[in-house]
Design a binder for these strands. Structure first.
Length: 534
RNA sequence: CGGGGCGUAGCGCAGCCUGGUAGCGCGCCUGCCUUGGGCGCAGGAGGUCCCGAGUUCAAAUCUCGGCGCCCCGACCA
């Protein structure tokens, strides 16, 4: 955890007269807050300080940073703003990839691979695209020791190079639609970075489609948004609000951008997937044209959509608690961990035998399971370790359990004794499978309840200001960029989206007719979510 | 790019103000002992004190200049 002295920037806000040193100032501040921090003078506290995370209430940002490192999801790369995804984090991403890829394939998309390097001139071809992306491009100017005739940019996204190729491949209405996706990484030179949420390079999928008609492309855009929402809700257990972005927030080059927005554990919003209706903007810039049935040359209508490793950050921040990660069973690298407990060699052999048998039964029923056979750490240590790493179900198996052909099951989403039950070994794979389903549902319901509790239907500007302090404000907005900009300037909250479902999923919610803008009081047809965002 | 903080063993830090033998905890290795909620004891290995210049008999410590990272703002998936 952070020592008081590390909080100097915070403490400096309250800096007393210069007669006090910085540390004294910090201590003064902390005692004002009435909070007891562990001291560096006490050896025991010191050890605990290193093993325990800060609580989310103490410092949400630091809780997140330390958890990502301690759970071994990722680490900082030697290059500023870049991350290394470690095996545990990548296993989570692989499960996410499979869940999404399955849905993409089921809706007719095919995977492809386009190059990392894109001619600089391609980016320049679409007016809004170049304006949006120029500041954050990484550019290669030298290759093989020679200065390049034309600089190459490292892809920030692939609309341009795909448009270029489509112009060659697409000739006829019979070639349409083209439904492609690629899993890759992209680079955007962000100024301020945070593991998973915003790094210079990040991993994602980018889908790109071309259609004969506007209507078809619009349907595709919405279909992919629905797929993202379905994935978020059913696999990541994250309730999200699908909606439309304002002009200020939309993708550079899109006519319409949709997103799914989730509420994190600190009440801030995270855009967790986007789907763009690109109109004919890129088709015109790259001359993606086809002959229709009447022999007329037409520009295609295109879409693009992406979901990134940022959602790993969402999973951490939505479900995590003060003990660490809480991973949704459908995506968790390990759904079950078996912790064997024994003293003597005799106990060890019978316990390990039972544990191995259980493990193979679980494997046979397609449960992702690991047996923690490490010799060094004590069982108690392992409990805490796997809790921190978010494994949904822990099986505690010791001599007492073996004696009665049972084991203790502990639910990660219900910490402490409350989440523990003794369960017979016979039929345990089925019981665990059922438990995983329950946990998945409970996690979603908990997150939804949290979002509801922190979403306020703010009718006045004062109410909005209050609401965005720790959650979402849901308010009528006239649609003007001026009001949007003023709200952002004055509250640091941005317009997240205009929810497609204006009832926010409340079955019996009364959807009011037209209202008046929360900022200017002019007539407003729709309500929008305002929140501070990552 | 502005404001702040930090850089000393794998990790977390103390030492710096007031220059003189480089330390503590965790982790790691060996042995014993323990194991049902972060065991214990003993021994051991491990250092370019971020880099460079300067001051000095002597620099982790003082001065100047770089570099890097983290946090807070402006920009963003």
């Amino acid at each position: 955890m952070r020592s008081p002295a590390d909080n100097a920037s915070f403490a400096s806000l309250f800096a007393p007269p210069h007669s006090l040193t910085r540390r004294e100032a910090s201590v003064t501040l902390l005692s004002l807050l009435g909070r007891v921090y562990c001291t560096r003078e006490n050896g025991l506290d010191r050890r605990m300080a290193e093993e325990k995370l800060p609580t989310r209430a103490q410092d949400f940002s630091e809780w997140y940073n330390q958890l990502v490192l301690k759970a071994q999801l990722a680490d900082y790369a030697p290059v500023r703003g870049c991350m290394i995804v470690r095996p545990y984090g990548w296993a989570l991403w692989e499960n996410m990839q499979q869940a999404l890829d399955r849905r993409f394939k089921a809706t007719g998309h095919q995977n492809v691979a386009f190059p990392l390097l894109i001619p600089r001139s391609f980016i320049d071809k679409e007016k809004h695209h170049v304006e949006g992306f120029s500041p954050e491009l990484a550019v290669v100017t030298i290759g093989g020791g020679e200065k390049l005739a034309e600089p190459l940019v490292i892809r920030p996204t692939s609309e341009t190079i795909i448009g270029h190729m489509w112009s060659k491949w697409i000739q006829s209405y019979r070639d349409l639609p083209v439904l492609m996706n690629q899993w890759n990484s992209v680079v955007r030179w962000e100024l301020r970075t945070k593991l998973f949420l915003r790094t210079l390079e990040f991993y994602w999928q980018e889908g790109h489609t071309a259609h004969a008609t506007r209507g078809e492309a619009e349907i595709e855009t919405r279909q992919m948004l629905d797929i993202y929402a379905d994935f978020a809700v059913n696999d990541a257990a994250i309730p999200v609000i699908p909606g439309k972005k304002s002009d200020a927030e939309k993708f550079a080059g899109a006519d319409v951008t949709y997103s799914i927005e989730g509420m994190m554990g600190d009440g801030k919003a995270l855009q967790s997937g986007t789907s763009h209706f690109l109109g004919q903007n890129f088709a015109q810039a790259f001359e993606v044209k086809y002959l229709d049935q009447g022999g007329q040359l037409q520009h295609c209508w295109t879409t693009s959509w992406g979901l990134s490793t940022r959602v790993i950050g969402a999973i951490i921040m939505v479900h995590g608690d003060d003990q660490g990660l809480v991973l949704p069973p459908k995506l968790a690298p390990y759904q079950v961990v078996i912790v064997p407990i024994y003293k003597t060699d005799e106990e060890k052999s019978s316990v390990i035998e039972a544990a191995r048998k259980l493990k193979s039964e679980l494997v046979a029923t397609n449960v992702r399971v690991t047996l923690d056979g490490r010799e060094g750490p004590s069982p108690g240590w392992k409990f805490n370790d796997w809790e921190m790493r978010g494994v949904p179900v822990r099986v505690e198996l010791g001599p007492k359990d073996v004696a009665k052909s049972a084991a203790v099951l502990a639910r990660r989403d219900r910490p402490g004794r409350e989440g523990k039950i003794s369960s017979p070994l016979r039929g345990m794979p089925e019981a665990i499978a059922q438990l995983l389903v329950e946990i998945q549902q409970a996690m979603h319901d908990k997150a939804l309840a949290f979002r509801k509790a922190n979403t306020h239907h703010a009718k006045s500007y004062d109410e909005l200001k209050m609401a965005v302090e720790n959650g979402f404000a849901y308010s009528y907005w006239c649609g003007s960029a001026d009001c949007e900009a003023k709200i952002k300037e004055e509250t640091r909250a941005t317009m997240r989206c205009i929810p497609i479902d204006q009832s926010l999923g409340e079955e019996n919610a009364k959807v009011d007719g037209d209202g008046t803008c929360v900022y200017c009081g002019q007539p407003a047809p729709e309500r929008a979510i305002f929140a501070r965002a990552y």
